[in-house]
């Protein structure tokens, strides 16, 4: 059951990410639904499940991208791992804490991409990436992400009401 739900969520998430999100781009930057779901699962799923969700999301993102295979797997796994490990020490109630967490996760995600491609592949990514694209991306995720965070939370509660057997999987 849980695998089925996650499969549907992933198909919907990546279909929306690759088609709808480009219509809401700001300065060429779009909202990263995969990152928001990774952070959500890292922070709010029981045990170390957030890590494996992060790994899976990263791997799918790599497969549906023209970028180097493994870059997003690395960043999303580490993000899932970090928030899964630190979740007991973090307060994730309200707009501001979620926003700050998403800001940090977005910067990390962008830095992993930049460093991997420039240091390992010597790809000619302009230095301006760090000062214009990355902050815009992080700000966009930090401002709009919490709304999606609340929406995912609301959806989770709705699913748990419909399928109480899944209660054990979520926190």
């Amino acid at each position: 059951m849980i695998v089925g739900i996650f499969t549907v969520v992933f198909i919907l998430l990546f279909s929306l990410q690759t088609s709808l999100m480009s219509h809401f781009s700001v300065g060429g930057v779009t909202l990263d639904l995969a990152l928001i779901l990774t952070v959500y699962c890292g922070v709010l799923l029981k045990g170390d499940r957030g890590i494996w969700v992060g790994f899976t999301i990263g791997l799918i993102q790599d497969c549906l991208s023209g970028s180097l295979l493994g870059v997003n797997t690395l960043s999303k796994s580490i993000i899932g791992f970090t928030f899964s490990t630190l979740k007991d020490k973090l307060m994730v109630i309200g707009f501001v804490p979620i926003s700050v967490i998403l800001l940090a996760a977005s910067f990390f995600d962008g830095l992993v991409y930049y460093l991997t491609l420039t240091l390992l592949l010597k790809a000619p990514i302009p230095f301006s990436f760090l000062f214009s694209t990355l902050p815009t991306y992080a700000m966009y995720n930090a401002l709009v992400g919490p709304i999606l965070f609340f929406f995912i939370n609301w959806s989770k509660k709705w699913v748990l009401r419909k399928f109480p057997l899944l209660e054990g999987f979520a926190q």
Partner: peptide, 21 residues
Amino acid sequence: KNIIILVSLVLASFALMTFGV
């Protein structure tokens, strides 16, 4: 256990990158 998981994930990602290249 956490360190082992983290190292495994990083290694898996780098293996994917090597395969990708």
